[in-house]
Design a protein around this nucleic acid. Structure first.
Lengths: 167, 167
DNA sequence: AATGAAAGATAGTGGCC
DNA sequence: GGCCACTATCTTTCATT
């Protein structure tokens, strides 16, 4: 297996093959999205195929990039980062050439969890998890001090719910 | 093991125990965040403890809610939802009693992937994945038609990068 | 593509330190 | 907490259809 689990997955995909998914593939994706550690045996039984067949299917899904990785969902509070926020960032109008600089800078900050590159009123949306409000204020202050940043808006995250993909 | 893998994890935690994490726990979390399917054997070797010990550690992390689940990261494009967007939602000023109604409605939409409940300029941030721009426009139109919604702002997501937690 | 069987690897238990 | 030894279970390969 090619181990690209260390490539922290961005969302761009280069569909080497359009990848036709049948009903069984979709069922497997649903199950693995729910619990990525479901044993191959159990997956196979759930979708009604032999374990060896199931193994092959999942490998193909992984190799073709349909499955980009398997990740533990770790509670930020438990690791000392209970305060989460969404920071909308507008860059300077003339900063088109400095997009990479901004991304590099922001990615270096350990508080950053998600970086969304947007088309719309804002240029970026950054989700961060910090230890406390002091750390958050520092981070926002730092970002505002960067030359390419025109402005930021920060919203605290009270609650977050995920929904699985539906196919 | 209590199987709560089917509870699509929200971010609230009720720290039954403050859960002290030592260096080994943090190493395990890092490894499992990178690749949730790393075999217990390999985890144990990486962090320098016996496999059985490692098994116990990971189980405790799971039971205490430090690890909330294990999820496959599925490429939305591969499942026919290549167009992603962030939708900021402001509710009507008098809609405080209708928060639950909004969340219920929005959660029913299959396009919705993340619902962030915010404190700030906006009340909610919704991440969605749709088949095309028609589907996105329909969704935004629908949300704007709800009585409790004062307004929305939609930004297309061009690119998304995740960063792992750093402990 | 899918399968069953066999071999090897891994997970999980319990007794002990 | 942690480890070792053991058993149960799972993964993976491969010859076959």
């Amino acid at each position: 297996m090619p181990d690209d689990s260390s490539l922290h997955s961005g969302e761009r995909t280069f569909p080497s093959n359009p990848v036709r998914l049948d009903a069984i593939d979709r069922a497997l994706l649903r199950l693995l999205e729910r619990d990525a550690r479901t044993p191959n045996n159990a997956l196979a039984e759930s979708v009604g195929i032999a374990p060896s067949t199931c193994l092959g299917r999942v490998r193909v899904l992984r190799e073709r990039g349909v499955i980009r990785g398997y990740h533990a969902d770790v509670d930020p509070s438990a690791t000392g980062h209970p305060l989460q926020a969404m920071i909308s960032v507008r860059l300077q109008a003339d900063a088109r050439g400095r997009l990479a600089e901004f991304v590099a800078r922001v990615s270096r900050r350990p508080e950053v969890r998600d970086v969304y590159f947007l088309a719309g009123d804002d240029d970026y949306m950054i989700r961060v998890a910090t230890a406390d409000s002091v750390a958050l204020r520092d981070l926002v202050g730092t970002m505002n001090s960067w030359a390419e940043v025109a402005g930021t808006r920060t919203s605290l995250i009270f609650e977050h719910h995920r929904a699985p993909d539906t196919y």
